[in-house]
Design a protein around this nucleic acid. Structure first.
Length: 135
DNA sequence: ATCAGGGCTGGCC
DNA sequence: TGGCCAGCCCTGA
C-alpha cells in the first residue's frame, strides 16, 4: 500500500494504488498468514500494513498476537521476520533472530545497544486512520 | 533526530 | 466482563 505507492510515485505517476486490500472475508489467522506470506523476500511490512492487507485496518495488535502463535504450526511457516513496527524497530523478544534473518535477505538493519531498527521511508503521513485524539 | 509518557483500537482467551 | 498483547499515534522534553 503506502510503501508501494511511494515507489510508484518515484517512477510513474498515473498508477493509482487503489485498494489492494480486499481479501476475502477469511478468518483472521488465515488472512494474516496470507498477508505475511505475500511479503516479498528482502522487504518488510509493518504490523499495521499486514492488518490492512488482511482486511482488518487497525488490527495491528491482533496481528502481533497471531505472529506469536502461528509459527507454532510447522506446516505453514511464515516469514514473520519481515513484519516490523511502523517506526522500523523490531520487537525486543525476537529482535536478534529477526535482524539476523533480515540481513540474510539483504535488508539493512542498524543496531544500537540491544535495539534494532530498519530504515524505512515514511509511508504513512499520519493518515486519519489512527488515534488522533484531540487535546 | 530520539525518547518517554498516555490514550486508544482490534482480536483473543 | 476483564485483561492481555511481537501495535499505533500524538505530544512534550
Amino acid at each position: 500500500m503506502f510503501l508501494e505507492s511511494g515507489a510508484v510515485a518515484l517512477r510513474a505517476k498515473t498508477k493509482t494504488p487503489k485498494a489492494e486490500v480486499k481479501p476475502a472475508p477469511l478468518p483472521f489467522p488465515k488472512a494474516v498468514g496470507q498477508a505475511v506470506r505475500a511479503i516479498p523476500r528482502g522487504q518488510v511490512r509493518s504490523y499495521a500494513q499486514v492488518a490492512l492487507y488482511a482486511g482488518r485496518p487497525g488490527a495491528a495488535r491482533g496481528v502481533g498476537r497471531e505472529m506469536a502463535t502461528l509459527p507454532q504450526r510447522p506446516d505453514v511457516p511464515l516469514p514473520w521476520w519481515r513484519v516490523i513496527r511502523s517506526d522500523g524497530t523490531l520487537a525486543p523478544q525476537v529482535a536478534q533472530e529477526q535482524a539476523r534473518r533480515l540481513r540474510a535477505e539483504g535488508v539493512e538493519v542498524a543496531q544500537r545497544g540491544d535495539a534494532f531498527r530498519v530504515k524505512v521511508p515514511r509511508e504513512t503521513p499520519a493518515v486519519g486512520g489512527a488515534t488522533k485524539r484531540r487535546r
